[in-house]
Design a protein around this nucleic acid. Structure first.
Lengths: 231, 231
DNA sequence: CGATGGAATATGTCTAGACATAATAGCGAT
DNA sequence: ATCGCTATTATGTCTAGACATATTCCATCG
């Protein structure tokens, strides 16, 4: 193994074991140079890796110190339903049930727009089984091309991904007992725990689309992995 | 700004703008050396930062290439339960129900360790109401100080946050109907939709802790925001 | 035609320095 | 005692090389 990795691992072990609590001073670079018999750049690379991982903080003149543990944030993978299903080796199918234009002002709290809105509802199937129920609103002012689509064969999510770029998104995840509409569509009892995923997307501050997807709880797991970016 | 940061930013801009699509070859290090008039180590540091961010991949002899875009992903805030509750202006309370040491080999599939494991179960209260049920396993080999704790007054999550750093974590979010144990603890019927959050954390590849938290569905929303590349 | 062994190439790691910069500690003057 | 200057110190950045290693390309051999 590369020397700089060994140094990183050695230091991390001291921190992990609790031998070096938060605030403890890590040996200065020249001492590590002497200990490992290497150049300063090598020590610097090793300690730099700990900085990226958020384990230590470095301050000029002061030295390098074990960092206080940070609150956790993680990168959540938001699944593309079609890709998710096909990755499992199952056949994917989309069935649209509703597609109509709503008058302005009827979508408060879901899509912030004064213009016309397209409402699409439908079901995602994995093999012969219902995988998700989806309700979607699309701002026709922001995505005018959507007015020419009937979304009978392609799900609005896939279409938007290819035709409507976005710069910001917000997701809200919760567990719900499905409302009567959703329960009927999914063929479930309302006692069946479902995962609700709401998504809002914006392009440069203008609301594009709102989506609410409901999955039978046992059919989906959202997984999130820690990433050192942005602690 | 440091030169290596400028190089990183320049390259990231090409990728973010779409000028360099996935698979596009990034100029080789010697060309970047010539372009910026710097040493190879400086170019290497700049490109290394892009690797950490997942924007490029490097292969010896082959070169450096723009990475395939990750599927839609977002930064998820994993809540600290106590902070979450107190932010709502409610009183927080932790009640431990179980705290015992398990023999090695009894936690398969949850915590990858051969050493002793501490098992803690308990409830988080918001005001007088149960907010979450928690089951936790802690590897005593990795966090030996936990053996001296009884977690009667402090939740293990809070204690670990202050004493056991981690570098990797995985979260699994799903909707479930609570099993009888959890339903009884939460005072709910098993028909009540609950959000299940499982978390595994590692430090440098060694498993530290596993936690399973169950929330009544209506009490919690996880929210995630998209973060564009390049901050 | 296919297999194989080099040669070429790009990155991976490392050295032994250099100067820059930020923060601190101590000193002296007020 | 306090302010401000300076010397010291530890990290930040960078250079101009070196050898190592993985991979690809290509020419040669069977």
């Amino acid at each position: 193994m590369a020397l700089h990795r060994r140094i990183t691992a050695d230091l991390a072990r001291e921190i992990a074991s609790g031998a070096w609590p938060p605030g403890h001073r890590v040996p200065i670079e020249h001492e590590l140079m002497a200990r490992y018999g290497c150049a300063r750049a090598t020590v610097g690379k090793a300690v730099g890796a700990l900085v990226v991982q958020g384990l230590v903080e470095r301050r000029r003149k002061a030295g390098t110190f074990v960092a206080a543990p940070h609150v956790s944030s993680a990168v959540l993978q938001i699944p593309d339903i079609r890709a998710e299903i096909e990755a499992r080796g199952q056949a994917y199918r989309w069935m649209r049930t509703v597609c109509r234009t709503l008058r302005p002002g009827t979508v408060e709290g879901r899509l912030a727009t004064n213009g016309p809105v397209l409402e699409v509802k439908g079901l995602h199937f994995a093999a012969a089984k219902v995988f998700a129920y989806e309700e979607r609103l699309i701002s026709l002012a922001e995505a005018p091309l959507a007015a020419d689509e009937d979304f009978a064969r392609e799900a609005p999510g896939a279409w938007l991904l290819a035709h409507a770029p976005w710069t910001e998104a917000r997701h809200e995840i919760s567990a719900i007992n499905p409302d009567p509409d959703a329960a009927a569509a999914l063929g479930l009892l309302s006692s069946h725990a479902c995962l609700s995923l709401k998504r809002w997307t914006w392009l440069q501050g203008a609301a594009i689309t709102y989506a609410r997807q409901i999955f039978p709880g046992e059919l989906i797991d959202l997984t999130a992995k820690f990433t050192p970016i942005g602690h």
